[in-house]
């Protein structure tokens, strides 16, 4: 199984019926495809849609029904549309149960950096800061390393997205939770040892008392 699928499948298990969920772009978008069939969640798109559905069939796209990336989507029965002030009120006001965000770095205390690389990539933060600050739970979906470097670092060297720590990061190797300023190794992916996770992680890891193997279905 490729790294992105492991991450998406594990995070999909966090989705429970009735939740309001916002998925960022990249790996987070894949999570929707792995939700259990009996789980009915509302997906929120920050451009002003709750009840975001799948990509429409060829020829069925509507120019005014789009996701936060501007791509055509469908709307599920019970969907609603609203203006951007309400949309961000949902995020900042703690009405979004889970947001899944991509990451460049997460540090030992759970700070996420995902919006700029000074001098290289300055796309603007869009809605990332509001989501990372206001959603009830923030889950980061990212690969454990990039170009051999750990993305789970002692201290973020990139500008952080929010002072509020994320709840957990899910990688192809592990689930790491952040509580009380500590990075706690809670789950390892099938076939991955604690030592493998440690050697791929720059941050200090505390191993959870109830450490167990990641379940993917």
């Amino acid at each position: 199984m490729d790294p992105q699928t492991v991450i998406a499948k594990r995070i999909a298990r966090e989705l429970k019926s009735g939740m309001l969920v916002n998925l960022g772009i990249g790996i987070p978008t894949l999570v929707a495809g792995y939700a259990a069939p009996d789980v009915q969640v509302f997906f929120h798109s920050e451009n002003g849609l709750i009840g975001t559905g799948a990509i429409p069939a060829e020829g069925m796209a509507h120019p005014t029904l789009t996701d936060a990336g501007g791509r055509p989507v469908t709307a599920l029965p019970g969907a609603s549309t609203f203006d951007s002030a309400i949309s961000f009120g949902f995020m900042r006001g703690g009405h979004v149960d889970i947001t899944v965000l991509g990451g460049l770095q997460v540090d030992q205390t759970g700070h996420l950096a995902n919006w700029m690389i000074p001098g290289k990539m300055v796309p603007g933060m869009g809605g990332a800061m509001d989501l990372a600050t206001g959603a009830k739970r923030v889950i980061v979906a990212m690969q454990h390393t990039a170009k051999g470097q750990s993305k789970i670092v002692a201290t973020c060297t990139l500008p952080i997205t929010s002072a509020r720590p994320v709840d957990c990061v899910v990688t192809e190797l592990a689930v790491i939770r952040f509580t009380g300023g500590k990075a706690v190794l809670a789950e390892t992916a099938p076939g991955v040892s604690v030592e493998q996770v440690r050697s791929a992680t720059e941050a200090d890891l505390t191993v959870a008392d109830d450490l167990h193997e990641m379940r993917l279905s």
Binding site: E46, S87, F88, G124, M125, G127, A128, M129
Partner: peptide
């Protein structure tokens, strides 16, 4: 000037 989206809409509001 880059502004977080939720802040931008609230500043306009």
């Amino acid at each position: 000037e880059l502004v977080p989206q939720g802040t931008l809409i609230e500043r306009i509001r």
